[in-house]
């Protein structure tokens, strides 16, 4: 299968009439891990939700394509079927729907009529994915996220990602609320997927998970724009110095920052 390409170009987004994203340009390919860091309110989650098609976000300018397909023309479930996945910061609790049943429904929705996954194949894959994430197999029969701790929800997001095998995954603060062991396990889960037919965009506040992921690309977002991009060392610099080291630059060179070519 061809290498996936998620191309975001000059993306402007408003929420309730207020501009939140002010021209984001970013390309993510297979075999790549990108990280976006930035202070609260910078627009990181807005970018993730806009990519997935949350109805609260309005695109006013720019384009997003996955493998050349205009994602913005698709509804949320069609984007997922096209191969996009979003691990959410605050996953919903769905009472009465077990994780296992839901995952089978979702896998079959992507496969289409007549090619449903066999129960045995499904169970094998589920057991394998749960082992990889050190999850108790009982989780599969619990109602989706209901009564889960913060860490359990995050692991469940990664489980869904492993099972659905997307082409591009966006992970929104997958590391927040996790203890150090869980961060390592989640990072291993993600790393195990990275290959020519999978790429990921990781949104995080903390450098910690990046020490496991070693992303090839790190972007810093401030006020709806990517103001600086670099390799993994940018995350280390940020961790050591905080966002302050960016301020003068982002104020003095807004145009350059907006283009995302730093």
């Amino acid at each position: 299968m061809a290498m996936p390409v998620l191309a975001i170009s000059d993306l402007h987004v408003t929420v309730d009439g207020k501009e939140i994203l002010k021209g984001v340009t970013l390309t993510i390919r297979g075999n790549e891990i990108h990280a976006i860091m930035g202070p609260n309110g910078a627009g990181k989650t807005s970018l993730a939700q806009t990519l997935m098609g949350h109805p609260g976000y309005t695109v006013t300018q720019g384009s997003v394509t996955l493998d050349g397909v205009d994602l913005l023309a698709l509804r949320t479930h069609q984007r997922a079927q096209a191969g996009l996945f979003l691990a959410m910061q605050y996953p919903s609790e769905i009472s009465g729907v077990t994780t296992a049943n839901f995952l089978r429904t979702a896998i079959n929705a992507r496969r289409g009529d007549g090619s449903a996954i066999s129960l045995k194949d499904f169970r094998d894959r589920l057991d394998h994915a749960m082992d990889l994430l050190s999850m108790d197999h009982k989780f599969a029969n619990r109602y989706l996220n209901e009564g889960f701790s913060g860490g359990e929800k995050k692991r469940n997001e990664i489980l869904q990602m492993l099972m659905l095998a997307p082409r591009i995954a966006v992970l929104d603060e997958i590391d927040s609320g996790l203890d150090i062991d869980a961060v390592r396990i989640v990072a291993q889960g993600l790393t195990s997927m990275v290959n020519d037919s999978f790429g990921a965009l990781v949104i995080t506040h903390y450098q910690r998970i990046l020490t496991y992921l070693k992303p090839g690309f790190v972007h810093i977002m401030v006020d709806g724009r990517i103001v600086k991009s670099g390799d993994y060392h940018l995350a280390e610099t940020l961790d050591a110095q905080g966002y302050d080291f960016l301020r003068p630059q982002s104020e003095h060179e807004p145009e350059q920052a907006a283009a995302g070519r730093l």
Partner: peptide, 15 residues
């Protein structure tokens, strides 16, 4: 819950 619908559709399930 509209958020719950959104969450499920984000996994590829039709609304």
């Amino acid at each position: 819950d509209a958020n719950a619908i959104y969450y499920l559709t984000s996994r590829g399930v039709a609304p």
